[in-house]
């Protein structure tokens, strides 16, 4: 799966993308966040405030209980500010 990061999440993590196989224990977007937080201090700091993080799977906004499969493209970002 591809995991993309934008804006200050990308800055805090220090990468714009990760690519790995969906871990067995991860079923939902929320569980993926918990998994990512174990990857290092930069990740745990970036994801420390779940409430201000939004997610999209395959280019559509989803909630944290959305169920993932291995071929998904997941993106994490702060609330959008377009226009």
């Amino acid at each position: 799966m591809k995991v993309l990061y934008f804006a200050w999440l990308r800055e805090r993590i220090g990468a714009s993308m990760d690519e790995f196989d969906l871990p067995e224990e991860v079923r939902t977007v929320g569980e993926l966040v918990d998994y990512l937080k174990t990857k290092g201090e930069n990740y745990s700091e970036a994801f420390s405030h779940k409430k201000v993080i939004r997610a999209a799977v395959n280019l559509e906004y989803v909630s944290f209980d959305y169920k993932l499969i291995n071929k998904d493209e997941i993106a994490f970002f702060p609330p959008v500010t377009g226009g």
Partner: peptide, 8 residues
């Protein structure tokens, strides 16, 4: 656009 377009 303000609330849904994925820009930062």
């Amino acid at each position: 656009l303000k609330t849904n377009a994925p820009f930062w």
